[in-house]
């Protein structure tokens, strides 16, 4: 049961650590909901529950559940000898996946370049950097994707996606 894979890389977080983090986050979420609910009356009036009633008790449920999960993580034997939850290798792969995704959002929403530009940049980055494709293939797929989305959403379905200065400069509306 307590065997550890010798070939696995350095442990980054044990299952217990991860459980504690998750429970703490849930606790914070529940507390936030309760605070939000307290802006309204949380009682049971003559016409039934008042606006804050449901959010308040739902927040309480989350808090109770989170405290329970926290105790389970700390004291129950369930995860005491569970293998590590995440090792350095896995964390690196996840980070490498999330980073370009974050770049997509920053490019599209914070620099306000729109979805099309961000999607081309994102696809190019991932294919060249992680997929190790050659430039022509990556260019073809990323621009092809943008073109397909453009035809499908703008022209056919008439659902405009977010556009930025590049499209305006190219005269695409």
């Amino acid at each position: 049961m307590e065997q550890h894979d010798p070939s696995a890389s350095r442990a980054l977080a044990t299952r217990r650590t991860l459980e504690v983090i998750a429970a703490a986050l849930a606790l914070a979420f529940g507390a936030t909901i309760i605070l939000g609910a307290l802006e309204y009356r949380i009682g049971w009036g003559e016409r039934g529950p008042e606006p804050g009633y449901f959010p308040f008790w739902m927040g309480m449920i989350v808090v109770v559940g989170a405290i329970g999960a926290l105790f389970e993580a700390l004291f129950a034997r369930r995860h005491a000898d569970a293998p590590m939850a995440i090792n350095a290798d896995q964390a690196r792969r996840v980070a490498l996946f999330l980073l370009p995704m974050l770049g997509f959002l920053v490019l599209a929403l914070i620099f306000k370049l729109g979805l099309y530009v961000a999607m081309v940049a994102y696809m190019l980055t991932v294919m060249l950097w992680q997929g190790r494709y050659r430039l022509p293939a990556a260019l073809a797929v990323s621009f092809g994707t943008a073109a397909v989305f453009y035809f499908m959403f703008e022209l056919w379905l008439h659902v405009p996606l977010m556009k930025g200065p590049v499209e305006a400069w190219l005269g695409i509306h």
Partner: peptide
């Protein structure tokens, strides 16, 4: 774990509100 189910359902109901 029943606690985790509580957290999950409670979060869902809270978000719905």
């Amino acid at each position: 774990s029943p606690f985790k189910t509580l957290v999950s359902a409670g979060m869902g109901f809270s978000l719905a509100a």
